[in-house]
Amino acid sequence: MRRFLYVAGLPVLLLLGWFVLSSGSENFYAPPLRDILRAFVDTWTPERLRADVLPSLVRLFAGYVLAALLGVALGVAIGLNRRLRATVEPVLEFFRAIPPPVLVPVIMLFAGIGDGMKVIVIVFGCVWPILLNTVEGVRAVDGVQLDTAKAYGVRGAARIRTVILPSASPQIAAGLRQALSIAIILMVISEMFAASNGLGFTIVQFQRSFAIPEMWSGIILLGLLGFALSLLFRLAEGRALRWYHGLRDAQRRS
């Protein structure tokens, strides 16, 4: 109960502040929160959620999962192979330095404006933190653990599955966490450029038709979505990396 108060206290306070300060607002672009909340209820009906939010989420999920598979697979290959690493590392750093949104127009040129384009944009944007973190994690695997695996004949796929990946998993999870927020941003941006449905598309649509409270309600929904997804991620991570958090606590205590 007490913890809940601590966690929920500041958000509630901020919302209250917004509500009170904006209640008399005459500004067309910053309507009272009351109106926004009313618009929220009216706008985000189940049909609308199915028609606009679901496609966004599917694209987000597809892009994120693809990026995760690609990033981890390439990351393990690069992390395990010194020569490969020396060859590709500068190129990787270059690609990573490109802000992904600028690629949207380019990718549109050859992938069209369909779902494929949006998924590619998401993959291209969020594969880098996953890839680079995986490389780091794989390189940092303890030498004694590797020797142990080697001495007991654990090699090939079993070595990767039972030793390399688990050992690198805390670092991989850090990459996945960064990638998640990038994926959400790119989902919205790619939909703002060219789309016929989706959250980003809908928000831009509202803005162009001067449906300002509805636009704000879309932004709030986006915020809630991002929050829910990162909460889900934290839950999944806490579960998968229970050993790691336990180990760290144990080391801190000693």
């Binding site: 303890d142 004694v144 653990q145 020797d147 142990t148 039972t162 030793v163 688990p166 050992s167 998993s169 050993w243 790691y244 180990l247």
Partner: peptide, 11 residues
């Protein structure tokens, strides 16, 4: 191994 702590897999 002499480094017994590091030779066990913590996961």
């Amino acid at each position: 191994f002499q480094e017994y702590g590091r030779s066990l897999f913590p996961w």
